[in-house]
């Protein structure tokens, strides 16, 4: 009796489960299976293709892009979060920085690409200004469309994301701890070395991992900016999808996609472990 009622209760979950199975699980499983099969036959060709020098180079470049924007974003965003956290807790400054960061962290894709094309592209407003003042000439170089350009553009959404995820951790630091350290005669440096940094470091590292995953998985911004060539993994997937007539390319698309899922999952797992550690003293 009780058993049948429990089954009855679970039926209410069916529509949701069917939906996510169809539109999330099946596509992911198709990717995993597609990476190791060709025409229904098991093969590791797709996986070994990832080990070719060009593919390794592209993987390395993607990791470099994700890592460098994660570090820059964490540094700058961490600094912004810190200066905001020392402001009045319910002040207007803090509220506006928090909501602005929430908006800007979602800003990406085509609009962000055009924002930077209008700024430092070949005919960008800043490019022309710099050229007219004989400082530097961007108008003939396509640096915005290379990895360096992507680092700059990604920073624009990484910094606000850092502010959102890191601010709660800084709020966890009670001003009383600082005062207690002062009363015991600690200098600012000593306070940060022995109290502040050890407290926020796990959260800082965790936020950085989230930023890494965010940049690693980003597609739209890079796709809108870089129309020729495929310097990073997501764009390599685009190439594979668009040239599926070429034999073996579809398979490569699957294996790159699988590689990306694996890397992002590992990073997100590490992030959730670190986050659990910090959330203990946050409340």
């Amino acid at each position: 009796m009780a058993g049948s009622r429990r089954i009855g209760a679970s039926v209410g979950l069916a529509p949701f489960l069917v939906y996510v199975t169809l539109f999330l699980f099946i596509p992911t499983i198709v990717v995993a299976i597609g990476a190791v099969t060709v025409d229904g036959r098991f093969t590791l060709e797709g996986i070994t293709a990832l080990k070719e020098p060009t593919m390794l180079e592209i993987t390395y470049r993607t990791l470099l892009l994700a890592a460098s924007t994660a570090v820059i974003g964490a540094m700058v965003g961490g600094l912004v979060a810190y200066v905001v956290s020392t402001a009045k807790p319910n002040g207007i400054l803090r509220k506006s920085v928090a909501s602005l960061s929430g908006v800007l962290a979602q800003f990406g894709g085509v609009t962000l690409a055009f924002a930077f094309i209008a700024t430092v592209g070949r005919e960008g407003v800043v490019s022309l200004w710099l050229k007219n003042h004989d400082i530097v000439d961007f108008t003939t170089s396509g640096w915005l469309f290379t990895l360096k350009g992507l680092v700059l553009v990604y920073t624009y959404f990484q910094v606000p994301l850092m502010v959102i995820v890191f601010l709660p951790a800084l709020d966890g630091i009670r001003p009383q701890w600082r005062e207690a350290a002062d009363n015991l005669g600690a200098t600012t440096a000593q306070y940060w070395r022995h109290v502040g940094l050890p407290l926020v470091f796990p959260a800082f590292l965790g936020s950085m991992l989230l930023l890494f995953a965010n940049a690693f998985a980003a597609y739209a911004t890079a796709a809108a900016l870089v129309s020729q060539g495929s310097p990073i993994l997501p764009l390599q997937i685009r190439k594979a999808l668009q040239s599926e007539v070429v034999l073996g390319y579809q398979n490569l698309g699957y294996s790159i996609a699988l590689e990306m899922v694996v890397i992002v999952s590992v990073v997100m797992y590490a992030y959730s472990r670190l986050e659990r550690r910090t959330s203990g003293w946050l409340r």
Binding site: A9, S10, G12, L24, P27, A217, I237, G253, A257, L258
Partner: peptide, 29 residues
């Protein structure tokens, strides 16, 4: 109301799209 035990699982599923990049879902889609 009915299956509070499933809450963690549902949250996990709902947050999954953050871990599975859109570009990957497209490939299998």
């Amino acid at each position: 109301l009915k299956v509070p035990k499933a809450r963690k699982a549902m949250e996990f599923i709902c947050l999954l799209p953050l871990t599975i990049p859109a570009i990957v879902v497209v490939v299998g889609f």
